[in-house]
Design a protein around this nucleic acid. Structure first.
Lengths: 248, 248
DNA sequence: CCTTAACTCCGTATGCCTTACGGAAATTGC
DNA sequence: GCAATTTCCGTAAGGCATACGGAGTTAAGG
């Protein structure tokens, strides 16, 4: 939450471009910063951010708890490093085709990323760290929309809109997936338990539209929802809106 | 995280419509479930969800820690009750005007709600509780779009899109506000500290578009960003997209 | 070669957190 | 007046981040 030792953390973030001038005294390091970060990513991938702890990172590295603090200033800084790490994990795909295709590429790249690393959605950095990969991400997003005839301000706003929509949609999708996996209770089971109580509790006819639409959606999806399909639908509408802006 | 005692929690959620048949033996309750929930909301409003603890709720009520557990099953269930509470806090505004105005009303209602209770964005309910106010919310959202000529499925998808975009945008806005308030470090201060390091660290000319667009946006906003304005911009695009769907 | 500075590793302690368990005391139904 | 029920809460177990300081390791500098 706090931003402790900003200089040191920035140096860690940019350790690749910055030639890290190391004092070489003292015992050899048993691991590297990269290994610490990768171990952190592994823990977060497997257990999510709430269960992510410095002890688990240490265990995975064969270190004792407090040794981890010689590599990174603390938990929240390590998470910041993990974020930039996974943003750089997959190269940004080339931006081909027209504007619509390019923005679709951008949106799905982030969509997939959120599904590979759902804990990204749980990170609440008070002040997000500026790392090499997050910088490159923004540049790439702008490149997708450069030359379409928008002002610089509009370009920034379109990128923000796409990011907000994708994150909000991924939140729903990822939560649904996590629930299905970890609780071991399927949608059907859950409804079987809750429906009797809800029928007893809901005033009959109180929610007519919800009943009609919920039934239609449920039949079409064969489930309570279909986050992927819903994301695609909204993305098409959103891109229609961007094209309307260009046609003005 | 877990959904303990689903029946009991559902009964608590629907306590208003359900006449709670109470056994009256034993010592008098010193507070009510509503007071517990309101105390929880107050704590979360002031300190955010990570700092939200059962002990602070107890202190605020003049109870000792463990007594709170006689009112609600546990922390996560209390948070579920708090969510439905704040959704019902302000009546849903009437839906006047054309489709565009009605959807704008819906979006801004949720936008304001997220700013009143930023912790809503930090809630990660594995399986969201179905309460009276969240049920009414969905019904109201559907009413905003009913009669526009969309299929039931499309209605559900438009509501989902609006919710995802609003939540994603509010996440940015609320994070920016929290950072400014709690860290005591302004945008300007933060840049003053970080700019030297970043200049040393970023390959010059590596991010040409980011530089150009970031400068333009910074001058226009007089800040790093203007979440409110960005939200409005994206909302207009999104609504253009919905109207394009209707005109098909 | 030897001193010493710098560095890693980590034990310990502090102070948070949730929640299981069980006891004491209060209140009412019978 | 007795028993069933319920509230309040003390205690303890098991988790967490991290401040602090000590022990031992390595290389630089004299």
């Amino acid at each position: 939450m706090e931003n402790r030792e900003p200089d040191r953390t920035l140096e860690l973030l940019w350790r690749r471009t910055l030639g890290t001038p190391q004092g070489t005294r003292g015992p050899k390091k048993r691991v590297s910063v990269d290994e610490v970060i990768r171990a952190g990513v592994a823990v977060a991938d497997e257990e999510g951010l709430p269960a992510f702890s410095m002890r688990k990172v240490a265990d995975r590295l064969g270190l004792k708890l407090m040794s981890v603090y010689t590599y990174v200033p603390g938990r929240s800084e390590l998470i910041g490093l993990m974020v930039d790490e996974v943003i750089g994990e997959h190269a940004h795909p080339p931006l081909d085709g027209d504007l619509r295709e390019r923005l679709t590429t951008v949106a799905f790249h982030m969509w997939d990323e959120y599904h590979r690393h759902p804990w990204l959605l749980q990170v609440e950095s008070s002040r997000p760290w500026i790392g090499p990969h997050s910088s490159e991400r923004y540049e790439w997003q702008l490149a997708a929309i450069e030359g379409a005839g928008l002002t610089d301000l509009e370009m920034d706003q379109v990128v923000a809109m796409l990011g907000a929509y994708t994150a909000g949609s991924a939140q729903v999708s990822v939560t649904a997936r996590r629930t299905a996996e970890q609780s071991g209770i399927s949608d059907a089971d859950w409804w079987a338990v809750n429906a009797p109580v809800l029928e007893r509790v809901m005033p009959p006819g109180a929610y007519p539209l919800s009943g009609r639409v919920g039934t239609a959606a449920g039949q079409e999806y064969n489930a309570v929802g279909d986050p992927d399909r819903t994301f695609r639908f909204g993305l098409e509408r959103l891109l229609d809106g961007v094209e309307a802006l260009l046609a003005r």
